[in-house]
């Protein structure tokens, strides 16, 4: 049985809608993981042990266990506790938190790498530590993390395929639906792979522009 791509066009709309969901999921979870990463980094670096230690446990949970299991916990596990999240929201939260923990590590290192003189200069002008962090230290730290966090975003895009198992109609699940009707796995998985790759290229282009803009502003 050779390849026959004529089976694809009738399902192209389903596949493209799936691709759009993948983009929505990646952008949404990406933003969540970025701002969550900053938030977690500030907790890890600047809060007393009573906040920091529970956070460490939470961080360990997200770094030391499979993402798939985390998605199951959030989607199926929480139902038992009376929290019935839509699959898309559960996927968004799962991916977002998972990558926020990784981003937090990067952002912590980057905050610590900002010259101590920056905080001193800001404090000397009369800023509180929180104000100095918000206006002086964190904006500088964030500039340095665009490349490594960009890598995490690309990993996030690829891992977003996992949420197909909790029934989010993203690209992988759409391909599976089409395969279920046509029994043509090779063609549809190939089309899905190409679409992932195209989204990936788009993301890389956005990241490159972002890096360029940051470079120009110094």
């Amino acid at each position: 049985m050779g390849l026959d791509f004529s089976v694809v066009p009738p399902y192209l709309d389903i596949i493209l809608i799936g691709a759009l969901w993948t983009v929505a999921l990646t952008v949404g979870a990406g933003l969540l993981s970025f701002f969550g990463g900053i938030f977690f980094a500030l907790i890890a670096l600047y809060t007393p042990a009573i906040l920091r230690l529970p956070f460490r446990a939470f961080e360990w949970l997200f770094m030391g266990t499979p993402l798939l299991l985390q998605l199951f916990l959030i989607y199926f596990g929480l139902v038992q506790m009376g929290v019935d999240l839509p699959a898309f929201v559960a996927g968004l939260i799962g991916l977002g938190l998972h990558f926020a923990v990784y981003n937090s590590e990067i952002i912590q290192a980057s905050i610590l790498a900002v010259d101590k003189g920056q905080m001193e200069a800001a404090r000397t002008l009369g800023f509180s530590r929180a104000q100095a962090l918000r206006k002086v230290v964190v904006p500088q730290a964030v500039r340095e993390v665009v490349p490594p966090i960009g890598n995490n975003m690309i990993a996030l895009l690829k891992d977003s395929a996992l949420v197909s198992v909790i029934g989010v109609g993203e690209l992988t699940l759409s391909a599976q639906l089409a395969i279920g009707r046509t029994y043509r796995p090779f063609e549809f998985y190939l089309v899905a792979a190409i679409l992932y790759y195209i989204v990936n290229l788009g993301m890389e282009a956005v990241l490159r522009r972002l890096e360029r803009r940051i470079r120009l502003a110094r």
């Binding site: 001193e120 200069a121 800001a122 000397t124 002008l125 009369g126 509180s128 904006p139 500088q140």
Partner: peptide
Amino acid sequence: YEKHINQVRQDIGMVFQHFNLFPH
């Protein structure tokens, strides 16, 4: 103390050896 010192520091300008301008 934080409130007090942040107020007082507004009245005390300081210039550092390494400038410490905000590069961003």
